[in-house]
Amino acid sequence: KRPMNAFMVWSRGQRRKMAQENPKMHNSEISKRLGAEWKLLSETEKRPFIDEAKRLRALHMKEHPDYK
């Protein structure tokens, strides 16, 4: 399984929150809205998620050196 990218790290928490606030909303609609919100974030707002994704990628490479 591939490590999560920055968007996936961010959206994991956001998706849960949005699903709780809008229980009838379909997952595909939640995904569209999350994608639009992510695009509006500044580089500074994205930075912690980018850093976490880098950390996860490095850990994955260490644990699975033969993974392509």
Rank of each mutant, 00 (worst) to 15 (best):
H26Y: 06
K62A: 13
K17M: 06
K62P: 14
H64G: 12
R2I: 15
R15G: 08
R15Q: 11
P23K: 05
I50H: 13
R16W: 09
G35K: 13
I50R: 12
Y67S: 13
E52W: 01
R55C: 06
S11P: 00
A6H: 01
L56K: 05
V9L: 15
K24L: 12
D66N: 11
K24F: 11
R2M: 10
K68S: 14
H64Y: 10
I30R: 01
M18R: 02
K68F: 08
W38I: 00
E37A: 09
L40H: 08
A58Q: 12
N27Y: 09
P3N: 07
H60F: 10
G13A: 12
L40W: 04
H26Q: 13
E45G: 02
M18E: 04
G13S: 08
E21C: 01
P23A: 04
D66S: 10
K62D: 13
G35M: 13
L40A: 13
R15F: 11
K68T: 12
M8W: 12
P3K: 13
E52I: 03
T44G: 13
L34T: 01
H26N: 15
S42L: 04
N22D: 06
K1S: 14
R55G: 05
L34G: 03
F49A: 06
P23G: 06
L41M: 12
L59N: 12
M25D: 03
H60M: 14
P23L: 03
P48C: 03
W38R: 02
Q20G: 06
G35R: 10
K1V: 08
M25I: 09
W38Q: 05
S31G: 07
R12I: 11
A58Y: 07
R15C: 04
R57Y: 07
Y67G: 15
E63F: 04
V9P: 00
Q14F: 03
P65C: 12
K68E: 15
S31E: 15
G13W: 07
E37N: 06
Q14N: 04
L56D: 04
E21I: 03
D66A: 12
K46I: 01
K68R: 08
V9G: 01
I50T: 06
A19M: 14
M8V: 10
M8T: 08
K39D: 08
M18F: 08
A19P: 02
I50E: 15
Y67M: 12
S28K: 08
P23V: 02
G35P: 05
P65R: 11
R47M: 12
K54P: 01
E29S: 03
W10L: 01
W38C: 02
W38S: 01
E45I: 05
E52R: 00
H26S: 15
M25W: 06
D51T: 14
A58L: 10
V9E: 05
N22Q: 06
A53W: 01
E29N: 07
D51E: 12
K62R: 10
R47L: 09
H64D: 13
A58D: 05
S31I: 08
R57S: 14
R2A: 14
D51Y: 08
G13R: 04
S31F: 11
A53G: 02
R16F: 09
A6G: 13
P65W: 10
P3T: 13
M18I: 09
P3E: 15
D66E: 12
T44C: 10
E29I: 03
R15H: 11
R16L: 14
P48K: 05
M61R: 10
T44W: 09
T44E: 13
M8F: 10
V9C: 12
W38H: 02
L41V: 04
A6T: 01
E52K: 00
M18V: 06
S28R: 06
I30M: 11
K32P: 02
L41W: 00
N27G: 12
P48I: 06
H26C: 14
N22W: 06
M4F: 05
V9K: 00
R16E: 15
L34F: 02
K24C: 08
M8G: 09
H26E: 14
M61W: 09
H60N: 14
N22A: 04
F7G: 00
E21T: 03
M25F: 07
R47W: 02
E43Y: 06
M61K: 15
L41K: 08
K68C: 11
M25L: 10
K24S: 15
R55I: 04
G13D: 15
W10S: 03
E52A: 03
S42Y: 00
G13E: 15
K46A: 01
P23M: 02
E43A: 09
L56S: 06
H60C: 13
Q20P: 00
R15K: 05
A19V: 12
K62L: 11
K54W: 04
E43L: 07
K54F: 07
